[in-house]
Simulated assay, not measured.
Amino acid sequence: MSVEAATLPLVAIVGPTGSGKSELALQLAEQFNGEAINADSMQFYRGMDIGTAKLPPQDRRGIPHHLMDFLGVREDTTVAAFQRMARDAVADIRSRGRLPILVGGSGLYVRAAVDILEFPGTDQHVRAALESELESVGQPALLARLAEVDPISALRINDGKRVVRALEVHALTGRPFSSFMPERQYLTPTVQIGLNGDRAELHQRLAARVHIMVEDGLLAEVQSLIPQGLREGRTAHKALGYQQFLRVIDGTSTLETATEETIVATRQFARRQLTWFRADPRVKWLDWAQPDLGSAAAALVNATWMSQAQGNTDT
Rank of each mutant, 00 (worst) to 15 (best):
R98K: 15
H125P: 00
L206M: 08
V222N: 02
N158S: 15
F277S: 04
V191H: 05
E256L: 06
A5T: 12
A12D: 04
T262H: 04
Q290M: 13
V14I: 14
D92Y: 15
R272S: 11
Q83T: 11
M1K: 13
Q243E: 14
A36C: 15
W276K: 00
H125D: 14
L108E: 11
T173Y: 01
T190S: 05
A5G: 00
I93E: 04
R84I: 08
P291H: 01
G107W: 09
D59C: 12
L300P: 01
Q268I: 09
R127D: 10
R209K: 10
M181R: 13
T7F: 07
A53W: 08
A270L: 06
V214Y: 03
P291G: 03
Q273Y: 06
M42D: 13
A166F: 02
L300F: 03
S179L: 03
R209L: 05
K21I: 10
L134V: 02
I249Y: 07
R127Q: 12
E135R: 13
T190N: 06
V11H: 05
V110N: 07
N158P: 00
P120D: 08
L102I: 13
F44L: 12
E131S: 10
P281K: 00
V264Q: 14
L24W: 04
R156T: 05
F44D: 11
A141Y: 01
Q308T: 15
A208I: 05
L8R: 10
A297M: 04
N158R: 14
P151G: 05
H203V: 08
E232W: 02
A298W: 02
I50H: 07
K54C: 09
D92F: 15
T77C: 09
R282C: 03
F82M: 14
E30F: 01
R156F: 02
H237E: 08
T313P: 00
A81M: 12
R175S: 06
S95F: 05
T77R: 08
T78F: 01
R267S: 07
N196R: 15
Q43S: 11
S22D: 03
I116M: 05
M42V: 09
H170I: 07
G72D: 15
L117F: 00
T266Q: 10
L142A: 03
V126S: 04
A113D: 02
F277C: 05
A147W: 03
W305G: 00
P100H: 07
E148R: 15
I37G: 03
D123R: 04
G72A: 15
A236C: 12
L230E: 11
F180N: 04
A53P: 00
A309L: 09
V283S: 01
R127M: 06
A265F: 08
L102T: 08
L99E: 02
T275E: 15
G241K: 09
T275Q: 14
G72I: 02
K21T: 09
L117Y: 00
Q124G: 01
E215R: 15
D159N: 15
I212D: 15
E30L: 11
A220S: 15
R184P: 00
D280H: 09
S178L: 02
L142M: 05
K161Q: 10
H125L: 12
H211L: 10
D292V: 03
D115W: 08
T252N: 06
Y45K: 03
A141C: 04
D115K: 01
R46V: 13
L28Y: 02
S2I: 12
E75Q: 15
L206G: 07
M213D: 12
E131N: 08
D287G: 01
E201H: 11
N38G: 06
G72C: 10
